[in-house]
Every structure is written in structure tokens, then in C-alpha cells.
């Protein structure tokens, strides 16, 4: 069985990767790959594999379940980014208020802290937008 596993892996590495975009492989192959991408939170690639295997005949219910798993992960990640955005926005507000206090004028200010927060906020918002797009794409599949 170990030999068979290694053989399958070798065949997959040499034949699977170059030919997987053709859509010739069975649905289960693409579902396995989609789940592997999902394990690494690579939603874009998981959707790509799901799209390739869209016209599944035999494994339609499994395909649907994998689609739902990806959608669920998108939502969990989006929620997480939403929490971070709330936290960072709170910190920025706090920093802005602190900057207006008179005693702050005489102290050395960490000038780049606000910029760092704003950069992080922009990145978080970008990530959330990307996840929104993925979710829309998955719903349309």
C-alpha cells in the first residue's frame, strides 16, 4: 500500500499538476485539491479547483458540500478581519484624542504609530473586500 501511495504521488506530481487545468481529471481529484488549498486558507485556489469541477455528475453532493465549506471559511475569516478592523479603528480614535490633549505637546510622540495603525487598517479592509468577492463568486457558482 505504501508503494502504491508513492506511485500515485509520483504520477500526480508529473501528470497531475501540468494537466489539472484541462478539467480532464475526475471531480474527486479537484475536490481533494480544493480541500488541500482550503487547509492552507488559500481560498482563491480552492475556488479555482471548484470551478474546474463545476459540471460534476457523480459527486454533485460532495461538490456542494466542499463549496459550502469554502463559503463557511470565507465567513469566519471575514468575521475575524471585521473584529480586527473594529479594534484598530478604536485604537486610531484613541490616538487621535490623545494627540489633542495639551500634555501630549510636551512629550515625544510616537509619530509613526498612527501611520502603522492606518496601514494595518487598510490591509485588513482590503482582505475583507477580497473575501467578500470570493463569497460572491462562490454564491454565483
Amino acid at each position: 500500500m505504501i508503494g502504491l501511495g508513492i506511485l500515485i504521488r509520483i504520477v500526480k506530481a508529473f501528470v497531475g499538476k501540468p494537466l489539472e487545468n484541462t478539467g480532464l481529471f475526475p471531480t474527486r481529484y479537484y475536490l481533494q485539491e480544493a480541500l488541500r488549498s482550503l487547509d492552507q486558507d488559500n481560498i482563491g485556489e480552492a475556488i479555482k479547483f471548484l470551478k474546474i469541477s463545476k459540471g460534476a455528475l457523480l459527486d454533485r453532493s460532495r461538490w456542494k458540500l466542499v463549496r459550502q465549506l469554502i463559503l463557511f471559511r470565507c465567513r469566519v475569516l471575514r468575521e475575524r478581519h471585521g473584529k480586527r478592523i473594529g479594534y484598530i479603528e478604536g485604537r486610531i480614535e484613541k490616538l487621535k484624542i490623545q494627540q489633542k490633549l495639551p500634555w501630549r505637546w510636551f512629550r515625544k510622540r510616537p509619530t509613526d504609530r498612527l501611520t502603522q495603525y492606518q496601514d494595518a487598517l487598510a490591509l485588513e479592509k482590503e482582505a475583507r473586500l477580497l473575501l467578500d468577492d470570493y463569497e460572491r463568486e462562490l454564491k454565483d457558482l
Binding site: I8, L24, P26, T27, R28, Y29, L58
Partner: peptide
Amino acid sequence: GILEIVGAGFGLIRI
């Protein structure tokens, strides 16, 4: 469909 049946038979049963 035939390819899917073949694939289901070839070790991809652990899905």
C-alpha cells in the same frame, strides 16, 4: 462521466 467512474475506482475513494 466515464472518466469520473474510472477516477472513483482509482484510489480517490477517500474523499
